[in-house]
Design a protein around this nucleic acid. Sequence first.
DNA 1: CCCCTTAGCAAGATGATCGCATCTATTTCA
DNA 2: TGAAATAGATGCGATCATCTTGCTAAGGGG
Lengths: 233, 233
Amino acid sequence: MVSNERNEASKPSLTEQSYETLRNAILSNQLAPEGVWSDREFCERFELSRTPVREALLRLQSEGLVEILPRRGTRILPLNASDVREIHQVIKALELEAALTIAQSADNADALNAVSQTVVAMEDALEKNDLDLWVSADAQFHDEVVSHCENRRIVKTYRSLRGLTDRARYFTLRLRPLPMQSTKEHRQMYEAMRDKRLSDLEALYRCHWDRTTEEIARLIQEHSQSRPLSPLR
Amino acid sequence: MVSNERNEASKPSLTEQSYETLRNAILSNQLAPEGVWSDREFCERFELSRTPVREALLRLQSEGLVEILPRRGTRILPLNASDVREIHQVIKALELEAALTIAQSADNADALNAVSQTVVAMEDALEKNDLDLWVSADAQFHDEVVSHCENRRIVKTYRSLRGLTDRARYFTLRLRPLPMQSTKEHRQMYEAMRDKRLSDLEALYRCHWDRTTEEIARLIQEHSQSRPLSPLR
DNA sequence: CCCCTTAGCAAGATGATCGCATCTATTTCA
DNA sequence: TGAAATAGATGCGATCATCTTGCTAAGGGG
């Protein structure tokens, strides 16, 4: 009666806690992606003990945020232009698949409604010249599309990859042109989804992501030429 | 043949060893996907100790093969028809993206050559009526496509998901019709890729995967109706 | 009087800590 | 320059404390 399935809310384990702490520290760039860190340094800095930290690092490695060098230490992987391009390509493919699924679904009223609202929010934010609001609406657009595709694997993979590039998106936001073009594209994507124009939807999606990707990747390339390449795993 | 970047081959840590052992045991169905296992049982059965087993289980959980119930044990997740559909949808999207990338690449001679050879191998195997050989060639077709897309994230995500459904594919292989249709489709996909007919390629890919997915999913549904649904994470 | 519900206890298992042997990298000496 | 020793850190295992769960018994209701 009392017990439902959410048992992780009751008491976050230290491993979970370590994972969240380290992940946030990396994504917010509090941990510089340079040099090799030892377990001890993580422990001392965040007041955690070794086992939870080790298990958290293993998870972060599987997500591609860090690289564990056996018997040597842990390296925070920097995000270079090539990484952004690779990750965005996967995101593009997954999100397009989700959008196509929604467009072809018979029962997509909820999804379309949710997506529609985010488009309106983007247009409002643009009018008010509120970039933070726009970013939030933009993120929500993509999240709503993915969330409504009824495929937990797509959602999970998408979320984990998306987190990686939020760093990049955040830092390059104010360096990019005002997102008028982007806002228009989002409306077009929504309408193509609504009207079940599948090939239009696909072309729009690919175009949108390819353009966004190039904008961000170029900015990263210009602003951090000194950073080393990061091997995967 | 020649190992290039694989530095884990030099000396497999016990964690790596545990991971491989457990993963193989699950994928080959030596560990029944029923009931909850304790750490000790894994340790005794495979003669490993707890720390490596725990770390391996964490990795397997992040791949969706097992579910760790806090303070209760570890459950091997069964593969039901719905899972197969979800995973195949992701695979379809990723592999299509890879195929499109190859088709649009200027320097795709190597890739096309490798893929072409696997198609020939499939046709040979079919003629000899050698199912095992056919399966191997089939797997190699998809692997070559993904491997040549120059995107490590796609490769990595693909491999991890593909492993999950190999179980299903293996078990349903001999229950499915002879793969004549499938072989023909692979040749068509290859030719579309070679001739840069992108929309054909896309349609062929979607059609191929959707058909394969339904074949396998239906067989699973019929053969294992008694199995419980498996929640993700 | 019997059965069902609930509280309490015990046993077993897990999350986390700590220590040891081993391996890597660096430094020093020949 | 090269080899060996030393210092430091990691991988792994042993151990402790806490939590879950199943069993038992007591109490209340039919």
